[in-house]
């Protein structure tokens, strides 16, 4: 079954690439493909990059028959449950080293306290691209700026190799190269505190991400990201997915400054009169 899935996935991705070959994208004044617009995925990768069935919640406790939602999340019922997904990892599973896999499992069982998304921390790369929010690419001959609705995260992308990042950061340091009409962005300089999804999949500060963005139609692009991190994975591995252009008239990125939304969670106990 797994083999069949792999073959299907390979077929799907090669047909997509063929489509990309025949599609003539809109171009900037300098002849490069024009990626301007608001983009968003339609998948459940932010819940779990790997294949997963639907489940009651992200956080569980032992129940008398089966595990039940943790008490912190039980009140939101079906709104807090998880939709299924086929997974976006090429080959099916993330090739963790043995100890790293154990860490991933600890992350997963300690999700409420550990997922940086819960505290509205900057999402890192590639996670920012497949959250439940749009992101906007502002692109011209002299600038490339990715802005994300979630947490107002930003990637200010260098147009040539700037050398090693001067400091570690949440969103890393990115620079743009081109492979034909494919935008290739290499990102390093991470601080190792971001995750890859809500299921505890993670990386270290040694992560290097190579992303490939290829316009495949007026409304779609093919996205791939290869993650190299010798401290956590046995080999580089790749996720791939389509990303869709939002086409509603006058559509735009809205503001989701969640810092204010987590103040009760993070500082509520320090109020003069904490709420009961």
């Amino acid at each position: 079954m797994e083999r069949l899935l792999t073959v299907l996935l390979l077929l799907a991705s090669s047909s997509m690439l063929m489509a990309a070959d025949s599609y003539e994208p809109p171009r900037l004044a300098n002849g490069l493909p024009d990626f301007n617009g608001v983009w968003q995925v339609l998948n459940t990768a932010n819940y779990n990059l790997e294949a997963h069935g639907a489940q009651a919640a992200m956080a569980f406790r032992e129940g008398p028959v089966v595990p039940v939602p943790a008490k912190e999340v039980v009140a939101i019922g079906a709104v807090g449950s998880v939709p299924a997904g086929l997974g976006v990892v090429q080959g099916g599973a993330i090739p963790y080293k043995r100890r790293a896999l154990a860490q991933r499992d600890r992350n997963r069982s300690d999700w409420l306290a550990s997922d940086p998304e819960i505290k509205c921390y900057l999402p890192g790369v590639p996670r920012a691209n497949y959250m439940d929010f749009g992101f906007e690419i502002a692109h011209n001959s002299d600038a490339l700026l990715f802005s994300y609705e979630y947490a107002g995260a930003v990637r200010n992308i260098h147009l040539s190799d700037p050398g090693p990042a001067p400091l570690d950061s949440w969103m890393g340091q990115s620079w743009l190269g081109w492979d034909g009409d494919t935008m290739v962005i290499e990102t390093t300089g991470f601080n190792g505190q971001t995750w890859l999804d809500r299921s505890g999949n993670y990386h270290s500060d040694k992560l290097k991400v190579i992303e490939r963005f290829t316009l495949t139609s007026a409304h779609t692009m093919h996205y791939e990201a290869t993650l190299e991190d010798p401290t956590v994975y046995t080999r580089p591995w790749t996720i791939s997915m389509p990303i869709y252009k939002r086409v509603a008239p006058d559509d735009r990125l809205m503001q989701f400054n969640c810092v204010e939304f987590v103040e009760e969670l993070m500082y509520g106990h320090l109020r003069k009169n904490p709420l009961q």
Binding site: A138, N140, A143, L145, S147, G152, V154, N156, D250, R252
Partner: peptide, 28 residues
Amino acid sequence: YQFVQTPGQVKILVEMNHAIRTIRLDGE
């Protein structure tokens, strides 16, 4: 502040707190 322009908008990335101002030209 970093200014980035596209047809129809001017974006200003404000360094402090990575705030983005999106100025929509002739928008509603």
